[in-house]
Design a binder for these strands. Sequence first.
RNA 1: GGAGGAUUGCCCGAGCGGCUAAAGGGGGCAGACUGUAAAUCUGCUGGCGAGAGCCUACGGUGGUUCGAAUCCACCAUCCUCCA
Length: 458
Amino acid sequence: MIAALKPAGGAGLLDDLRWRGLVHQCTDEAIAGRAFAEGSSAYIGFDPTAPSLHIGSLQQILLLRRLQDAGQRPIALIGGGTGMIGDPSGKSAERTLQGLDTIAGHADGIRTQLERFLAFEGPHAARLCNNFDWLSDMSLIAFLRDIGKHFSVNAMVQRDSVRARLQEREHGISYTEFSYMLLQAYDFLILYRDFGCQAQLGGSDQWGNIVSGVDLVRRLVPTRAADETRAGAPALGPPFGLTSPLLTTRSGAKFGKTEQGTIWLDAGRTSPFALYQFCLASDDADVPALLRRLTLLPRDEIEALEARHMAEPSARVGQRALATAVVELCHGQGGVRAAERATTVLFTGDPGDADLGELQEIFADVPSHVVSAADWQAEASALRLLLVGEGRPFASNGEAKRKLQEGAVRLNGQKVTATLNDPVPSESLIDGRAAVIRIGRKQTWLVCVAAPTEEEAG
RNA sequence: GGAGGAUUGCCCGAGCGGCUAAAGGGGGCAGACUGUAAAUCUGCUGGCGAGAGCCUACGGUGGUUCGAAUCCACCAUCCUCCA
């Protein structure tokens, strides 16, 4: 019923995806267009290689969401079974196999995250599957007879993902990973046949796997002829696949991998503040694509933002909108507020107007360290205690000295000119105990001195 | 099985008895300029030390030498050629 209220949603879906730059290759755009117009079901697979998805996966998650919003039924497939094999696509070396428990744990984490983005109830309820369910107890003989027979090794060897590894004698490819493609194709077969899923979507690196799946379904399941009408035909149209370009930065690097590590969607791994900052620091040239692909903002709104972004890039309108939208999607309004508050304190105000409790709240997600009162006393409040050591900005005295000489260290907003052994006057600390330390513009630390115990105080 | 060659700091790569904490490049961090952008320019990029300086480091272990990343022996790993 809701679907009937917005028929344009499905029909315009493919156009919207194209406009957003989410269409790289499609096995058959005519079939895709018809399927979307009529209302269909599509799936995307997620590998349980880590307990959390990262921002690179956000594009795929939102793609499912866009389908759902346009009246399609999205299926998220967690690769609990295929994750035990390892996808060779885009990998230069054989992967280390992970344990069953590890993968199951990862799958749980990923499920929780997906639930935040998709509606699992209602007219186009999303569905979550785990291919472990049908792969785990499959017999090898059955697999080879029923599935393997339909694949030509000659063709498989031609796939980019395999060919690259065959040519590289140093790494090679194991039989295990070579077989991966068959498993993923089998997934599509199961989903098509048993779950009514007409399409598989994925990143452009998945093209080979997706095409294999489409081929397998075509061979094994009788489908409605492309020009037949719905009446009297099987419910499901012919299978199709569609890939999206992988997100990269303008310098070609994989999106979401920084020197500090991956940008995760789990707040425990990458705080809302860090995620917000990551978006806010986006390259101008990347902003339009990111707005289109990583937010649910409507087209006209994005076009207006892009116009302002181009006209006056220094206002950073695009980055701000991006950061807000992404953080809201991942962590809700509360996450946005926390991130904005921290950003404001950090970049515009003197952190000193906040008291200690407030600071801890604002910077809950910034690395922090507590110096013991005894050490503080013993070393005469030496600056070193705030700067060097675990949980603090510098790993060695030498590094701290260099950065001090470069004028890179700020303590509560004031540039530090002292040397490491100089005492820190208590006026320069918040409540005499806490310091927001910034190294350059991008690194922030919160260090405070523990309150002396009664014994030490006395 | 035989004959050669390789193994250097985060990565690539020069050095081939002292002038080497090790050229050069990349990456990273910082400073300047800016807009928490890009580009550019500059500095830094093993540890301890206020400093002189000391310590640790050129696949591993021993050795030669006043002195070794550099020479020798053995071991390990990789590559090439011949069986």
